[in-house]
């Protein structure tokens, strides 16, 4: 398969996703996702992308060094691991890749959905699968890794290698609006098409909230 072994694929994706090799193999989806990504990006272009991605991951500047189109492909691949779906790409990247496929989000397979990693980021389970048992929702969930813990574990990585367009790590108590989704204008808008939230205005609910807190 374009000379990329499943092992190489998984090892590289560990760095894209922040999940361990064990977690990625544990989905049982590595082969399907490699095939899906290759099909979507195009066999030749995927090989070029893959080489660029590996180079960027070894660069102290990290993923910032990718071209916009390769950056979008890296995002799409990460999205695939997290959700089981191949997303809609930025139309500019779609055009540059000269993709034959429709630029719409689709689920790679029914089990790809249930193996999505996003649920594991907060110790959840996919809606409609891997049910945890009667009454378990009443128990306090385990905490997600605290900021310090996570940073410690990535101490070996160069600072900022995983950030694009931002100097400082994201502050979790003041989450920037443009990393969060806006209200979904209609249900036919796929998750990867939901725009980012607008900057809050100083009036209305926001202001009211400040007053009450003060």
């Amino acid at each position: 398969m374009t000379g990329i072994s499943e092992q190489e694929f998984v090892r590289t994706c560990v760095r894209l996703t922040g999940f361990t090799e064990y977690d990625l193999y544990g989905t049982g989806m590595a082969g399907l996702f490699l095939g899906t990504a290759r099909d979507q990006v195009g066999e030749d272009r995927f090989a070029v992308f893959w080489a660029a991605l590996k180079k960027a991951l070894d660069d102290p500047q990290g993923l910032k060094t990718l071209t916009p189109t390769h950056l979008e492909a890296a995002r799409a691949l990460t999205y695939l691991w997290y959700t089981g779906a191949w997303p809609r790409l930025a139309p500019a990247a779609h055009a540059e890749l000269r993709r034959q496929q429709a630029n719409t989000e689709f689920m790679a397979a029914p089990a790809a959905y249930t193996e999505g990693l996003v649920w594991r980021t907060f110790h959840g389970h996919p809606a409609g699968a891997k049910a945890p048992g009667f009454g378990t929702w009443a128990a306090k969930p385990p905490d997600v890794p605290a900021t310090g813990e996570a940073q410690e574990e990535q101490a070996e990585e160069p600072a900022g290698a995983y950030r694009v367009g931002m100097e400082e790590p994201v502050a979790l108590d003041e989450v920037p609006h443009d990393l969060l989704p806006a209200f979904r204008a209609s249900r036919d808008i796929a998750p990867s098409e939901v725009p980012t939230a607008r900057a809050p205005e100083a009036d209305g609910a926001a202001q009211q909230q400040k007053e009450v807190r003060a």
Binding site: R15, L16, T17, G18, F19, L63, A74, R75, T78, Y82, L117, V118, T121, F122, H123, G124, P141, V144, P145, T147, A150, E153, Q154, E157, A161, Y162, R163, V164, G165, M166, P169, V170, L172, V175, D178, L179, L180
Partner: peptide, 18 residues
């Protein structure tokens, strides 16, 4: 031009979804 990956992504999602 803005976004996150890897451990930062995982931590961010864990917190903001949780």
């Amino acid at each position: 031009d803005k976004g996150i990956f890897g451990p930062e992504l995982r931590r961010f999602l864990g917190s903001t979804i949780g």
